[in-house]
Design a binder for these strands. Sequence first.
DNA 1: CCGAACCTGTGT
DNA 2: ACACAGGTTCGG
Length: 272
Amino acid sequence: MPELPEVETIKQQIEAHLVGSIVAGVSTFRTDVIHGEVLSIMGSTITGARRFGKLLVIDTSKDISLCVHLKMTGRLTLLPVGETFPKHTHVVFHLQPPRSETQLVCFSDARRFGYIHFLPTTAVQDLPFVKSLGKEPLKDLTKKEFELLCARSKRPIKMLLLDQHRIAGIGNIYACEALWMSFIHPATPAQILTRKQMQALFANIEAVLTEGIERGGASDNSYRNLMGGKGKYQDFFKVYGRTGKPCVRCSTPIERIVIGGRGTFCCPVCQK
DNA sequence: CCGAACCTGTGT
DNA sequence: ACACAGGTTCGG
């Protein structure tokens, strides 16, 4: 699913296109993806959007917020009234913009791992999931703190990058890409990395996440943005999903290995 | 801490 | 038919 850059892209599109719209109606086709009181947002105006790691939060004027986690296959799609809903649409929001036609925002999710949680805005930061998140790699996390996280962990560095309690927002794609950029093998125990490697990785995490956001995220498979469009970052993958294809640095075939039960892509020669 | 589970779709 | 999928949570 969407990782930090994909969620950030949707967040920015909500700020650009939905702020000021009134929530005029909500239709629910499956209630098992919903937590909290759906009707609490009726009649409120969307005031902004925030992101906590991979969690999207949409705030409204009645101090009710929607926390949306898209997990693997969740989508939010903006549509004109009358268009066919995307497959596996579970919730539809009817929005009234200030001076145009009513619009729909559909929450769809084939696998139904994702969810929408309606709750008071003040309660968002008390959610166990939000409280448990580590620092934001593009905001709060410092190089020093990152070095400390590495030094304290014996686990494979890739597992550390994916641990949302340590660092919030990195997923499988950006972990693989940042490690390739840093010439670091994903299975390397975090604490045996040299200081130089830690610093390179820290810089490359920022680089891949920033480039991901600039390119509108990665649509390797199912990701679509709010407007139904694809991201472009998948066209720039160096390792993710490139099993057997030549490493663009040394032409060794890219390998797929399994670390922590997750498919992991790396160059066995230039990542040490 | 690691594997299994949660679900469905897609590709081999 | 089987392996695999961008994430998180739970249980052993």
